[in-house]
Write a protein that binds this DNA or RNA. Sequence first.
RNA 1: GGCGAGAUAGCAAAAUGGUUAUGCAGCGGAUUGCAAAUCCGCCUAUCCCAGUUCGAUUCUGGGUCUCGCCUCCA
Length: 501
Amino acid sequence: MLKIYNTLARDKQEFVPIVPGKIGMYVCGMTVYDYCHLGHARVLVAFDMVYRWLKASGYDVNYVRNITDIDDKIIKRAAENGESIHALTARFIAAMHEDADALGVQHPDHEPCATQYVPEMLEMIATLEQRGLAYQAPDGDVNYAVRKFAGYGKLSGKSLEDLRAGERVEVAEGKHDPLDFVLWKHAKADEPEEVKWDSKWGKGRPGWHIECSAMGSKLLGSHFDIHGGGADLQFPHHENEIAQSEGAQPDDGSHGQFVNYWIHNGFVRVDNEKMSKSLGNFFTIREVLKQYDAEVVRFFILRAHYRSPLNYSDAHLDDAKGALTRLYTALKSLPVRPELVEGERATQSIHASTSSARTDLVDWSEPYAARFKTAMDDDFNTPEAVAVLFDLVNEVNHTKSAEAAAQLKALGDVLGLLQRDPVEFLQGRSLQAHMHEEVRASSSADAEVVRGENFINAQIEARIAAKKARNYAEADRIRKELLDAGIVLEDSAAGTTWRRA
RNA sequence: GGCGAGAUAGCAAAAUGGUUAUGCAGCGGAUUGCAAAUCCGCCUAUCCCAGUUCGAUUCUGGGUCUCGCCUCCA
C-alpha cells in the first residue's frame, strides 16, 4: 500500500485514487525565459520518479506538467533581447526538453502552455466573479478576494491574520485586502500586442496562478488525485490555486475539493543555501552536464529523499559517480538475461526505457524486489530503494547470478537508471563528443592523444607485449601513464579492459 | 515578527522504542607479476538538557543551531 506525504495533512497518508486504478497528476513546470538550473532538474527528476513508480504499481496515470509561457519576466526578457515572446519561449522550451531528455525524464502525457488556455482561464475568472470571489479593481485588474474564501491558508498552514502581520510588500492600489491576488492583469500601454488578450474586463493577460487552475481542471477534471511542485510553490501559488479551483467548483453538489494529495519536493542548495535565481547561486543543467554524466546527476538526485534538502557540490557529484560506477561494474561482469540484453545496443541513453517501465520483468515477491517495493511505497523512499540496489550488487558479485543481475537492472529501470551498456557508461563515451570539443578548443594535442580511444587501445597492446616480454617496468609505466590521464586498466582472465577514473 | 522543516559517524544519506542501513573515504585479510575490480572482516553516529520507559538516536518538554516560506522562485 502506497503512502504519500501529503502537505495538506502534514503527514503520510495511504494513497487512495479517486477512480480505482487511475491517477490524475499535475505538476507545476517551468517558466520559460532562461535555461533550467539544477533546482528545476530536481523537480523534473523527482516527479519523473513518482510517475514511473505509480505506473510500475499498475496505475493508469495521466501526468500533466505545464509550461508558463506568459509572465512578467518573460515579457521583460523578450524586450531586453529585442525578440518576440514566442521566439523566446520556443527557444527555452526546446532547451528544457533537451535537458529533461538528457536526465532520462519521461515525457508527461500533457504539457500544456498557458497561452493556449486563456479562454478556459477567462471562463474560470467569470465564474469566480459571479460567485463574489473576484472583483475588478479601479486600475482594471481583476483580483481574487481571499477573505471570501473560507479555506484560505489550509495548504500552507497560514491564517490571513498571520500573513497580514508579516506583510512586507507594498500593497497594490485597489485591493480589498492586501493578500488579494491578481487573476487578470490589465494591459499596459508599453506592452507588446502579443501579450494582450480580449476579455470582458478589457484587454489584458492572465495572472500567474490562474493558469494551473484552468489547465488542471480542463485536463484532469475539477477534482483530481495528485498535485506537485517545488516547496517554494506551496505559498502563495498552490494556496491560490486551491482558492481559485475550489471557488470555481462546478455547481452540482459534487466533491468541492480540488486535489487530494499535495506533494512538494525539497530544494537544491549550494553552501547550505537555497539555489535560486535571485540569489544568483545556481548552476544550469547544461553547465553541470558538461562536467558530469547525466545519469550521475539523476542518480545524485534520486539518492536523496525527494523532500530532503540536497546540497550541490563537485564532491557530492564525484561521490555519486563513484557509487553509480559500482552499480554498473556489477552489471558489466555478467551478461543479464537474454531478453534484457536484446535491444541494449539501441538503448544507449538513459531515457531509452519505454513509457511503461518493464515491470513485467520484475518478480515483486523476490526478497530484494519486495524490499525495494516496500521502500518506494513508503513515500517514494528512493535512498532506501537505492540501498537495495547496492545489496543486490553484493549478491551479483558474490554469486555471479545472472538472475540477480537481471533483477538489478530491472529495478534500476524503475528509477530510470542502469539501462545503458555498462562499458559505455564506464568508458564515458557519452562525454566523448564534448571532451573532444573542449580539447580542440584548448588545442592541447597531448590531452587529445591521451584521451583518444585509439591511443588507449594501442597502449594496452604495447603493455601486453611488454608483459609477454616480462618487461614489467614498461608495463607498469604504461599503466601509470594512462592512470595519470584518467584511464584505469583492469586485467582479467579475459584480457585487459579500461574505464575512466 | 508569524508559520514550518531539520540537526545521524571523515563526507553523503536512510531507518528504527532493544537486533547490519547503504555509498564514498579509512584499516586488516584474500586475490593480483604490480594494480584495478571483487570478496571476507573491521573502524567512525545518532546537537545539548530534562522526562516517560526495563531500555530512547527514535516518544514528550525545554534549549542551541541551521534552513525554508511569509516578495519572483522548482
